[in-house]
């Protein structure tokens, strides 16, 4: 049996629907004839965009009342799954996507495939490819049990491609009482302001790591990013240390970026970090340790002290005006 229907978990963004949601819809529509978006925080205003990318319907969970979105959507999906009978369900590897996939998997006793970076059709089967060991090894897997396969897919694994479809039909589903899972509630949301282009969309990303030595040195990263019309990023080490917010983090637990140029400053290249940036078209690394793994994937590596190199680099770019 080939796949005839795929559900794609969709999430909101400032511009309507998140770019990763659209990537997954495009991927799904290249695999199955029928693709339905299933999400929260979006309404009829995104129907045309979703339709353009291949979704025929948007099912939106409403009345969340502070319940964590992934948990809420999973519960609505579980109620509808028997009637709607999707053959596969795609989630992005975001906090909400992972919550939803995990809840749904345990509710329905279905296995879940995570860290998916590619999907291939092998006859009637869908084979998923997973990057392990920081992307050095690709493992291919498939489900052996019956029931819809649950896939958690990394951002930027697929390209969002508008195909010019009709607007997706819109349907609202009220979440209602979801039992004990719904007892965790958001009482207040905080948005951390950042200026300039978005980290996962910027053509240039300049990231800093532990090699910066101290929080104050991160200013150089921000200045260089601004000069290059790029976004500043960070390794997990300095996010953990509290120097910059989590929204700056590039890597396994942070954002996946694929800019035209990635400049890694004082980052040694832990697998955690490399899996989030090795898809960059060009990589420049500056690090004082000549044996740092980051140099194995850099197009240009400079072995040296970021505190000496970055000020000169910033001055040189400024003087070019």
């Amino acid at each position: 049996m080939s796949l005839s229907k795929i559900w794609v978990f969709v999430e909101p963004s400032e511009s309507g629907v998140s770019s990763t949601s659209l990537e997954l819809i495009s991927a799904a529509s290249s695999i199955a004839p029928l693709v339905e978006a299933f999400g929260y925080g979006v309404g009829p205003e995104v129907s045309q965009t979703l339709g353009d990318h291949g979704a025929t319907k948007l099912i939106a969970a409403t009345g969340l009342d502070g319940v964590l979105a992934g948990t809420a959507v999973a519960s609505v999906m579980a109620k509808r799954i028997a009637g709607d009978a999707p053959d596969a369900i795609f989630f992005a590897a975001t906090p909400e996507g992972r919550d939803a996939a995990a809840r749904l998997s345990a509710k329905l006793d279905l296995p879940v495939c995570t860290n998916v970076v590619n999907l291939l059709q092998d006859g009637a089967d869908l084979v998923s490819e997973h990057a392990v060991f920081g992307g050095a090894v690709i493992v291919s897997a498939k489900f052996t049990s019956a029931g819809p396969g649950i896939y958690v897919i990394r951002a930027k694994s697929f390209t969002a491609e508008p195909k010019g479809g009709a607007a997706a039909a819109f349907e609202e589903v009220n979440v209602g009482d979801i039992g004990s899972a719904g007892k965790a509630k958001i009482v207040q949301s905080h948005v951390e302001a950042r200026s300039g282009p978005k980290l996962d969309e910027a053509p240039v990303v300049v990231s800093g790591g532990r090699g910066l030595g101290q929080q104050e040195s991160y200013q150089m990263i921000e200045e260089l990013a601004k000069l290059l019309n790029g976004a500043p990023g960070a390794s997990r080490a300095i996010v953990d240390a509290g120097w910059v917010p989590y929204s700056y983090q590039v890597g396994q637990t942070g954002k996946t970026v694929k800019p035209s140029v990635y400049i890694a400053c004082g980052i040694s290249g832990a697998t955690q970090h490399m899996v989030g940036m090795k898809g960059a078209k060009n990589i420049i690394a500056i690090n004082k340790d000549a044996d740092a793994p980051i140099f194995t994937i850099a197009d240009l590596g400079i072995v040296g002290d970021v505190h000496k190199i970055l000020p000169k680099l910033i001055e040189a770019i400024k003087s070019k005006g």
């Binding site: 000549a290 850099a298 240009l300 590596g301 400079i302 040296g304 000496k308 970055l310």
Partner: peptide, 12 residues
Amino acid sequence: SGTVVIDEGEGY
């Protein structure tokens, strides 16, 4: 892997 150079002041 590309070019790796050791900074001797002009690496920038």
